[in-house]
């Protein structure tokens, strides 16, 4: 038996197969128009719930990315303050306090002139004198941790996140049937 002819009608024809094609071909589908009743309604695209779920997932990713970037930025500040505190203590020949890396209250206690009433206020922001004195060092240390390539990649990620936000807005507007705006907001940020 010629299997190739049975497979794709190539090669030498198989007589039995040809005979079956001829006989059974009389039963072939005869085109007839499809009658669509007027009351048949179409549901467009993906259900709104699916789009919402996708948008929520993307939003979570964007928030997590933002938090990660923020966390990395703040992580460098306490390390610098701790180093500077140690240096001040050594100059004054005072015993260096045991400062936990993220314990802002104990760090502030070392700074001269700190009163209990001011601790809570200054807890929100680091001691200005300390930051002011070490600003250039702080910036230098922070910038030195990121190479130019990493800085560029960071910019790309932030840019991508802004694009994601714009696309989410568009998708939301489309799913709600609102007219789509021609202008993308914050275009200067997107570039």
């Amino acid at each position: 038996m010629n299997d190739n002819y049975l497979w794709d009608r190539s090669g030498e024809p198989d007589l039995d197969v040809q005979k079956l094609e001829e006989i059974l071909g009389t039963l072939r589908y005869q085109p007839r128009p499809l009658e669509i009743p007027n009351d048949v309604r179409l549901r467009a695209g993906r259900p709104f719930f699916t789009k919402l779920a996708i948008a929520a997932a993307i939003g979570l990713v964007a928030i997590a990315s933002g938090l990660w970037v923020n966390f990395n930025r703040h992580r460098t500040v306490p390390a610098v303050a701790t180093t500077r505190d140690s240096q001040i203590d050594q100059k004054r020949n005072a015993p260096a306090p045991q400062i936990a890396p993220n314990d802002n209250a104990s760090q502030l206690a070392v700074v001269k002139g700190t009163t209990p009433t001011n601790i809570q206020k200054r807890h929100r922001e680091p001691a200005r004198t300390l930051v002011a004195q070490n600003k250039s060092r702080d910036t230098a240390i922070r910038q030195s941790t990121l190479t130019p390539q990493e800085l560029a990649e960071k910019e790309q990620v932030l840019l991508a996140l802004r694009l994601v936000s714009a696309k989410l807005n568009l998708a939301q507007r489309k799913s709600q049937g609102l007219p789509q705006p021609n202008i993308i907001r914050n275009q200067h940020k997107i570039g």
């Binding site: 996708i54 993307i58 990713v61 964007a62 790309q156 990620v157 840019l159 991508a160 996140l161 694009l163 994601v164 696309k167 570039g191």
Partner: peptide
């Protein structure tokens, strides 16, 4: 810009 667009599409998993 193209690279950022591609990154955005990746994040959107499109």
């Amino acid at each position: 810009m193209l690279e950022a667009e591609a990154t955005a599409n990746m994040l959107l998993m499109t």
